[in-house]
Amino acid sequence: MSSIVSVKNVTKTYDGGFQALKGASLEIQEGEIIALLGPNGAGKTTLISTICGITTMTSGEIKVGGHDIEKDYRAARSLIGLVPQEINLEPFEKVIDTVSFSRGLFGKKPNQEYVEGVLKTLSLGDKMENRVMMLSGGMKRRVLIAKALSHEPRVLFLDEPTAGVDVELRKDMWETVAELKKQGVTIILTTHYIEEAEAIADRVAVINHGEILLVEDKDTLMSQMGKKNLVIELNSPITAIPKALKSYGLTVSEDGLNLTYTYDTKGERTGITTLLTDIQKAGLTFRDVQTSQSSLEDIFVGLVQEDAQ
């Protein structure tokens, strides 16, 4: 697969001296959904704004569909649809007008049928003639998506698409994204909801303090770093780990009742059988066993904490 968006060593220092991006590099493949994950102020929005042309970069190179975003901005921007984080809409305009406006702005000839089609897919079919200010917050967000899709973009940026959106609309939004992916649209979304990235993304990029810490296939990420914990609840407390069990790297809870064993789900041997046998041999008895798998959230928190140290 070829990359449709290529970001190389991009830095951005704002006029006040704040460095929002410190040499970010990222290759986005055509047709994928990539989630940019990071805490508030990590540089997610700055990165998106820079690719889309809203902010200028201090140094580096960005190409969209092979077109340099500065030298060949018309070709590059024609491919991009952007759904901003804030609900920025002219309140007095009609829904259909504001969406048609976006289409024209991107140089596309008027196409009422197409625009209406987009609005219908986003369940805005019966709101076309309404003024924007009459719509609910969720509806306005859909209008923003319709505007971004109005000119048939190949790359869609969604900046925190589900921030402040109720559960139902969020699920709807995810379905829309899945539908767009089917049509071959590349989707880049920023989020700080881990579950969102987990639910819809193919790949995850973690960004913090203006740097891309990691870009990885979501499933690989989950399995590579997804360790499982086995918690063994003992019948009677222990003060120290018996010698025979030292090699397992167990940790004991404060009350001495829980032993935790961490193992790799992808490992050839998990070591659980021998561990349980050895526990019995050491004369310990247990009444319960639990396992838990680390989520993307644990991985993310771990990465961001590592970065802070």
């Binding site: 042309g53 809203i54 809409l89 702005l105 140089g107």
Partner: peptide
Amino acid sequence: FPKFIGTIYELLSAPVS
């Protein structure tokens, strides 16, 4: 007005000179 209500983002990200 677009600067004030934030819709300027669209002008800036569109392929317009």
